[in-house]
């Protein structure tokens, strides 16, 4: 009985380990944007863009290529497991969306996109929040005070004849 349980227990442990490995391998396949980080996703022509990624795991070298900016190296960044590199967007690059591809051994490939703009801002500016004027409360308070003053005046006028009686 105990041997069977032990057997099942060992089987479970081995099974879990076996399941874990393919999962680890799966993350090194072609990954989407979350694995590649840009210093800016909206660059002006002539600007330098830095790129970093954790997709290369413990590798210490990778290669990057930007549709607008050419090839660049990926070297260990300031944190373990991160490779980083940079490229310059050539002046005169037309505005648009460009892809950056990162590759590292054994067969890791990660792509991300960024935009090249005109260098000028575009679109409206979000520069207001709408002050809570609180006019309603102020109005109500003012009305209460006015009503109170009027009531007080009436009260006084009614009390004067009564006082005069005594």
């Amino acid at each position: 009985m105990r041997t069977k349980c032990a057997g099942v227990g060992i089987g479970l442990v081995l099974g879990t380990v076996a399941l874990a490995s393919p999962a680890a391998a799966a993350t090194s396949g072609p990954a989407s944007d979350p694995d590649i980080r840009f210093s800016t996703r909206h660059a002006a022509p002539g600007a330098t863009v830095s790129v970093s990624s954790t997709a290369c795991g413990s590798e210490t070298y990778g290669k990057g290529e930007s549709e607008a900016g050419g090839k660049f190296h990926l070297l260990p960044g300031d944190r373990k497991g991160v490779l980083a590199g940079e490229f310059r967007v050539p002046s005169g690059t037309e505005a648009g969306t460009y892809t950056v591809t990162l590759k590292c051994p054994p067969r890791v490939k990660v792509t991300g996109t960024f935009r090249v703009g005109t260098g000028n801002p575009s679109g409206a500016v979000d520069a207001g929040f709408g002050a809570d004027n609180d006019n309603g409360t102020q109005l109500a308070l003012g009305a209460v005070l006015l009503a109170g003053a009027v009531a007080g005046g009436v009260f006084r006028m009614r009390r004067r004849p009564a006082a005069a009686r005594t």
Partner: peptide, 9 residues
């Protein structure tokens, strides 16, 4: 009270 109320309103 009257003046304050008036001002607020």
């Amino acid at each position: 009270t009257l003046l304050t109320g008036l001002l607020l309103v």
